[in-house]
Amino acid sequence: MTVCVNRYRCGYCGACVGVCPNAAIELVETWVSVNDKACDDCSACVSICPIGALEVRGE
């Protein structure tokens, strides 16, 4: 499982970074980058996204 970012939808606001318990997400200017190794698929970022740009996807 991994968190996928729809970059065409993302508003790069950083809300997902603030709620990630593993500090696995970083907002690099307009680019949300997810560190798959640190991510534990809790999906807090998915529910918090105001614009629905994140989803957890199976392999």
């Binding site: 529910s47 918090i48 105001p50 629905g52 740009a53 994140l54």
Partner: peptide, 10 residues
Amino acid sequence: GSRSEGGMPI
């Protein structure tokens, strides 16, 4: 946040 889901605000 605890009552939202992806995309709800927009």
